[in-house]
Write a protein that binds this DNA or RNA. Structure first.
Lengths: 341, 341
DNA sequence: GATCGCTCCGCAATCGTTTGTAGTATCGGA
DNA sequence: TCCGATACTACAAACGATTGCGGAGCGATC
């Protein structure tokens, strides 16, 4: 019965009014123009016919598609699941649809996806692509459409961004280690060109001096990429430069797992000879041996907040550009312990 | 400059032709109707103005949105990342957009998402929601729109489905263990009401007798859900019933990790006293201690294939209903070894 | 009783395409 | 010179909604 869609015209005929009256009656923001009795009659007709407005027709007229694009650097990375879930949960609630774009073929790919989205007339754009600067296409896109960054920011803060408070997060890790009694702490950093890479490194150095430890630059070793292997080589470099390190703060869980390997390969035991903290607290991390102490970032919340501010932007509300920082917590497990000896 | 979209009317004016001629000239399947010289002139004008057809207008007229909905039971589950990526990669290539729906609030939620998608006039639907039967809404939806299942199937095979070959996969695990010399092998199964749960259990029993071992029903213990905890309790039950088991085939990686815990709690060592195989080979599994031998399902491929058959369906080609089985492989790691003693 | 104002509703244009049909050249052939 | 076919191109009607504007009806006011 419902296979054939009923249109506004059908509803109007059924209710015995003009199509425009039906339109107004059905639209809450214009319903006051039409007589309450008529409104009810139209509503009844719509109910009876199972009327659903045609989103394309509506969008064509109103120039809004009730859809937003979300561009993810790599959908296969478990990190982004919660972000997507958060975004989706609030947008669907408001009647928006979520278009997913997987930019797993590099920065240019992301740009082409942005253009695809614009072409489709999305009402807003959420970017989770990495990098501290935003491409020219993205910048241009900002003129045409509301835009929010998530889990990354731009150096000049020209686009609203929802990010984890990396400074606070690294602080949790450093203070945790300090309280355990560690004094020689190193940092395996992420790539400099990624906003989190640089930010967490700076935070590390900052917190080191805050807790009264020397913040030497060579306590930091930059990994080439957020992966296990680069983390291992970075950790090995770090440990050969500073064999006396008793703890390592990794800029990322995978880097932390790289540290695991490095420490093991040196015949030392994790959490005793060398303590290690991760960052992100991805799933399964608690099942590792030993389970990893890690800073936990509220990714789902992050996605939800990004969606909310995007909605505010779309609604024309003034949203202060710049970053919103989400407070992390720390999950203390067995990869950290008091320094040996 | 490009902020203001140019329409077909603009192109037509620029080229000095009627709007309908411009339309035909730009559409490859009708371009033959218009004079080659004119085609070129129109194309040139379109290029100059940066013309992009308005998808809403086009969709309104042609009744196609060039978008498909993908409904995922839980976006936060890393399993679905590759599926989404696979789907996205082939659909975007063909100019389609991917609408994501996260049905993490149960079966009814999935239904409401299906209706949302239909309302949006998606051209096709890909369902990854679990269950061996499909809801009434989904069944009705099949009349209105092309539909493909991925990573699940329905008992009556009334909807095309792309699934992993669970029978073959379990076979890989059982044969691997058999070749190592195991004779007492148990199975920690997934829930009966999930297609993979029942399928892998049946496959297990089948392969046991195939390799010449007794296929006793009580060598199988069903876990309540695909999670670590239920896996552990199931494994404990299994091991208390059969203390002489030297190997366990888990229906899922997480269940396998549950088995890890169970075996450890009994003071036995994994891969020596009791070998364990997982299923799915999710990320990080290779980083566990010990790294887990697991059947690997080509999820990305699965998503891609689902998208391809959906495209075929949309194009009106006859697609045989029933399942397409994707062959798994096995990643042999250190959670399996020859039986002790 | 004419005028004003108010409430409610209908008319028609519009959003940007696609597509069936009608129309106008042009050309070859008789 | 005229005719019919051929090859293009223009016209206009959709698709299904939203919305500015005008107009009908009606009660109140002077």
């Amino acid at each position: 019965m419902s296979s054939i869609r009923s249109t506004l015209k059908d509803v109007a005929r059924e209710a015995g009014v003009h199509i425009s009256t039906a339109s107004r009656a059905l639209n809450p923001s214009t319903a006051f123009i039409v007589h309450p009795v008529t409104v009810e009659r139209v509503a009844e007709a719509a109910r009876k016919l199972g009327y659903r407005p045609h989103p394309l027709a509506r969008g064509l007229r109103t120039n809004r598609t009730m859809s937003v694009g979300v561009i993810i650097p790599d959908v296969e990375n478990p990190l982004f699941g919660p972000i997507i879930a958060g975004v989706e949960s609030v947008l669907v609630e408001e009647g928006y649809s979520v278009l997913i774009g997987n930019a797993d073929r590099g920065p240019d790919h992301a740009d082409s996806l942005v253009e695809d989205m614009l072409e489709r007339h999305v009402d807003g754009l959420i970017l989770a692509t990495p990098g501290r600067i935003v491409s020219e296409t993205a910048r241009q896109a900002q003129r045409d459409v509301s835009m929010v960054l998530v889990n990354r920011s731009v150096d000049d803060d020209s686009i609203p961004a929802i990010v984890g408070d990396d400074h606070a997060g690294i602080g949790l890790a450093v203070r945790h280690l300090r309280e355990l009694g560690h004094e020689r702490i190193g940092h395996v950093a992420g790539p400099e060109w990624v906003s989190t890479g640089r930010g967490r490194r700076d935070a590390f150095l900052d917190w080191m001096s805050t807790v009264g430890l020397e913040a030497e630059r060579d306590l930091v070793e930059e990994a080439e990429w957020y992966q296990v292997e680069p983390g291992m080589t970075a950790a090995l470099a770090l440990l050969s430069r500073h064999p006396d390190l008793t703890a390592i703060v990794a800029a990322n869980d995978l880097l932390g797992l790289g540290c695991y390997r490095a420490v093991r390969s040196l015949g030392k035991v994790i959490g005793v000879d060398v303590s290690i903290t991760g960052y992100n607290d991805m799933p399964l991390l608690d099942l590792m041996q030993p389970s990893m102490t890690a800073v936990r970032v509220p990714y789902r919340r992050m996605g939800a907040d990004a969606a909310s501010t995007l909605l505010a932007l779309i609604a024309g509300e003034d949203v202060a550009p710049g970053r919103v920082l989400l407070s992390p917590t720390i999950a203390i497990r067995s990869s950290t312990g008091p320094p040996a000896g």
